[in-house]
């Protein structure tokens, strides 16, 4: 089984800072996403799975519409596998109700006038994200014990929580350590990949303009996110 741990907004400096050994693996580094005008989640994952820069195509759907992008498996490298399992990947099978609600709460947070209101919305927003995380984690761990030839688990927690809490280092550390523990449960070779990292703006978080990758097999240098379709295909042939 080839495993990809796809983690939204996993920040290179924090993975190192928190000494997350299982996320770092033997080789790790930053990805080059400078070809994109902005580090947009939906654009980046779409480009990853198709192996092509999908910025224009995804952006054409508009700010709201882009969140519902759905590529057919035929247009992705997942098609190379007999029995792939993809969990919650943006642009492929992103769970709409879950993530729509995240954005609604995010909007409510910024629209809210009072501190109290903001605080209560943030709590709801965080709880909503954590609940989803627990489900995805379980689904991913269960899938590791199945006979799929390809497994991709997408985890949004670092991004979703990060947007409203990135300034809380202790909280982020707990999330990174949890992701590190998830990586520890993978017994096969795996690739860790993020679309972009995160920068701190006070208590909040903004997307940083590089992503993160790691591998136990090979040093990929400073790859583009679109290189991974090919990298993973090659990996499959070696096996």
């Amino acid at each position: 089984m080839i495993v990809v741990l796809a983690i939204d907004a996993l920040e290179h400096t924090l993975v190192e800072g928190f000494n997350c050994k299982n996320l770092m693996q033997e080789f790790h580094g930053k990805t080059d996403i400078s070809e994109f005008s902005e580090p947009r989640t939906m654009v980046l994952w779409s480009s990853f799975m198709t192996g092509k820069n999908m910025e224009e195509e995804v952006m054409a759907l508009g700010d709201e519409g882009m969140w519902h992008t759905k590529f057919d498996i035929k247009n992705t490298f997942f098609d190379q596998f007999k029995d792939p399992k993809i969990i919650d990947l943006p642009g492929f099978n992103y769970i709409r109700e879950q993530h729509d609600k995240e954005r609604i709460l995010l909007k409510q947070f910024f629209d809210a006038q009072s501190e109290d209101e903001k605080k209560s919305i943030r709590t709801e927003y965080n709880n909503h994200a954590f609940e989803h995380h627990r489900k995805i984690k379980q689904e991913f761990i269960d899938a590791l014990n199945e006979d799929y030839d390809f497994l991709l688990g997408y985890f949004s927690i670092a991004d979703v929580i990060g947007h409203l809490n990135f300034g809380n280092r202790a909280m982020m550390k707990m999330i990174y350590k949890d992701m590190d523990e998830i990586a520890e449960t993978i017994k096969n070779n795996y690739i860790v990949l993020s679309d972009h990292g995160m920068d701190k703006i006070g208590m909040f978080g903004d997307h940083s303009n590089y992503g993160f990758w790691s591998s136990s097999v090979k040093d990929f240098g400073n790859p583009k996110i679109t290189d991974f379709a090919e990298i993973i295909k090659e990996n499959q042939q070696v096996k």
Binding site: E38, P39, R40, T41, M42, D63, M66, W67, R103, L106, K107, F110, H163, I201, G202, F204, G205, D206, H207
Partner: peptide, 11 residues
């Protein structure tokens, strides 16, 4: 951050 999130399509 509001401005940034808007640019990234969240808001």
């Amino acid at each position: 951050v509001k401005e940034r999130l808007r640019a990234l399509g969240y808001l």
